[in-house]
C-alpha cells in the first residue's frame, strides 16, 4: 500500500481541560484530554494535535502535566502547539513526551526560531503552523490566532519555513475554517507542489468526500479536523472505512 494519508483529530486544551464542542456522553471525564486522546486512538486516529489555548501562565504549566499524562497513556504520535515561542518551551514539551511541537506566530515574528528548534531537536519534531487567508494575489499569513494580518505571502513563508528546517507544515485555511465546506484544495495543492516536506491540511473538513479530495486533489499528506470528530458526526474509524479503497489510509485500524 505504501505510506498512508494521516487523519489527525485536534483537541483544544485550556487549563488542563479539553474545550469546545465536546458532546460525548459516555466518557468518565468528558473534558479530560487523556480520555479523549485514548478514545481517538481506539477509533484509529493516526496522530493527535493538542492545542494549548490557555491564556495564563498557570494554564501553560498545567499543560506540561497534561502532555506527560498523554505520553504515558497513548501509543500513537502526538503534537503540541499553542504558545511555543522559544527553544526552551519546545524542549520542555518534548521532554514531557510530545513527539512534535508546532509553532506559529512566534516563528512569523522571528523566523530563526525554526532553525533554533530544528537543529538541536530535529526537523521531524518541528511543525510550522501557517494560518492562511485568500488575498488579492494568492494567500496572506495571519497571526495571533487569525486576528492579525502579517502582510506576508503564505506560500513564500512556507518555502522559507521549510528552508529553515521545518519538518512539516500545518496549513489552515482561514476562509474554510469552521465552515465544513471542505478543505481549500487550491491552497493545499499549491503548498504540496511547492514544498518537499509533508503538508497537513486543516480548515473545512466535513465528510469523507472532503478528505478524499484533499488527499487526491489537494495532495495533502495528512488532514486535521476538530469539530466533525468532537461533535460525534464522524468517528475516525467510520471516516476511514469510507476512504479505504479510494485513498491510502491506515485501515483496518
Amino acid at each position: 500500500m505504501g505510506l498512508c494519508h494521516r487523519i489527525i483529530p485536534c483537541l483544544d486544551v485550556a487549563d488542563g481541560q479539553t474545550v469546545k464542542g465536546i458532546k460525548f456522553q459516555n466518557l468518565r471525564a468528558m473534558g479530560d484530554p487523556v480520555e479523549l486522546g485514548l478514545m481517538y486512538q481506539r477509533q484509529g486516529a493516526d496522530e493527535l494535535m493538542f492545542l494549548d489555548i490557555s491564556a495564563s501562565n498557570e494554564g501553560r504549566i498545567t499543560m506540561l502535566s497534561v502532555v506527560e499524562r498523554v505520553a504515558d497513556n497513548l501509543s500513537i504520535p502526538f503534537s503540541v502547539g499553542g504558545g511555543v515561542n522559544s527553544l526552551e518551551t519546545a524542549q520542555r514539551l518534548l521532554r514531557c513526551g510530545a513527539d512534535k511541537i508546532s509553532i506559529n506566530t512566534a516563528a512569523v515574528e522571528r523566523p530563526d526560531l525554526i532553525r533554533e528548534i530544528a537543529q538541536p531537536c530535529g526537523s521531524q519534531c518541528c511543525i510550522v503552523a501557517i494560518d492562511a487567508r485568500r488575498a488579492a494575489n494568492g494567500w496572506e499569513v495571519l497571526t495571533h490566532g487569525g486576528r492579525r494580518s502579517s502582510g506576508r505571502d503564505a506560500l513564500e513563508w512556507g518555502r522559507q519555513a521549510a528552508d529553515l528546517g521545518a519538518g512539516e507544515i500545518l496549513l489552515t485555511s482561514w476562509d474554510q475554517d469552521g465552515t465544513r465546506a471542505g478543505f481549500d484544495l487550491e491552497l493545499t495543492r499549491a503548498f504540496a507542489e511547492a514544498l518537499t516536506i509533508p503538508i497537513i491540511a486543516s480548515g473545512g473538513g466535513s465528510g469523507p468526500d472532503s478528505f478524499a479530495d484533499v488527499f487526491r486533489l489537494g495532495k495533502a499528506d495528512a488532514a486535521l479536523a476538530a469539530s466533525i470528530f468532537h461533535e460525534g458526526e464522524w468517528t475516525v474509524r467510520a471516516l476511514k472505512e469510507r476512504l479505504a479503497g479510494k485513498v491510502s489510509v491506515r485501515y483496518p485500524c
Binding site: G167, E168, T196, A222, R250
Partner: peptide, 11 residues
C-alpha cells in the same frame, strides 16, 4: 523520494 523523511504509517 520526492518527500524525505518518510513520515507516517506504512504497512
Amino acid at each position: 523520494a520526492p518527500k524525505v523523511p518518510q513520515m507516517g504509517w506504512n504497512d
